[in-house]
Simulated assay, not measured.
Amino acid sequence: MKAMLWKDWILLRRNPLYLAFGISLWLFIPVMIAVLSVSDPTNPATIDGLSAAQTLAPWYGFLGSELAICTLMANPNAMDMSASVEVDGTLESWRASGRSMLQYCIAKSLLPMLIAEIMSLSILGYLAWVGLTRWNSDAIPEIVCIVLTPAVIAFAGEQILLASHAASVGAFSVVSLVSSVPMPVFIIVMLTTSAAWALIALIAFGILAIALSIISAHRRYPTTLQPIL
């Protein structure tokens, strides 16, 4: 899995357009928070940092999976929607090795999850640095949500992309839009429910995503999948 993570990172580095896009969206949020937090000079702490980080966590999870698209196809910058999705042979090499294809699916999710966690936790660190967070026992569910949400959303998004087997760039783009569905759903959940209920929903969704990944791996690669349990 470490080798897969390193290879995916190299592929991402070779696509500066994706890196620039991700960094710009990553830094846009701190700038906006900095502006909003000083909008009231008499009360600079106008933002609840933990609530803001919790609400943004699904967005960073989705962003992590989107940035990793360039690791799933060899022509991520293709503009012709009818063009075929090119592969780099990683999937075929993994299958030929006889290793578990579920392990492959998990390995391909490591980079998106790592990117999402770095982005989300760095925002939390920034909010703490500027004094917009509160640290007490009541904040524990929110903190757990902030830590888990990016990884779960990124994992689910990556599994949707892997399960699609899209043959064309256009079809892959449609699947990419479908993979974004958990993001707005959980943003709404974070905004409309308590942190405890949001955490319960997140854990349930994570378990569902893992279960569907196992089922999908069994069905897609029945001859090469090794015993899971």
Rank of each mutant, 00 (worst) to 15 (best):
I123F: 15
S176F: 05
I29D: 01
S82C: 03
A128M: 15
S216V: 04
F62P: 03
V189K: 03
T149F: 00
F186S: 00
L177N: 13
F21L: 09
P182L: 04
T71Q: 03
A128C: 10
S168M: 01
L17K: 11
H165C: 08
G61V: 07
L114T: 15
S179M: 08
A163M: 13
V35Y: 14
S120L: 00
E92Q: 12
S122L: 11
R220T: 05
G131M: 07
S168W: 00
A166V: 03
A151L: 09
C70N: 06
Q54R: 15
A156C: 14
V175T: 14
S24I: 11
V181T: 15
G125C: 08
P16N: 12
S97W: 07
P222N: 02
R219C: 02
L17S: 13
M81H: 10
L11D: 14
V181S: 08
G206E: 08
G206M: 01
I207N: 06
A198Q: 09
I210F: 13
G89T: 03
G89V: 05
I106E: 01
R219H: 12
I153R: 00
I228E: 10
W94H: 15
W135R: 06
S82T: 14
G61H: 05
L162W: 08
A196E: 13
I115N: 01
I10D: 10
Y104P: 02
G131C: 06
L27Y: 11
W26M: 09
L229R: 14
R14F: 09
I69S: 08
V87D: 11
A217D: 06
M113E: 10
L110I: 07
F62T: 02
A78K: 01
F155K: 05
W94D: 00
L102W: 04
Q159K: 06
A196C: 06
W129Q: 07
K7P: 00
A83P: 00
S194V: 02
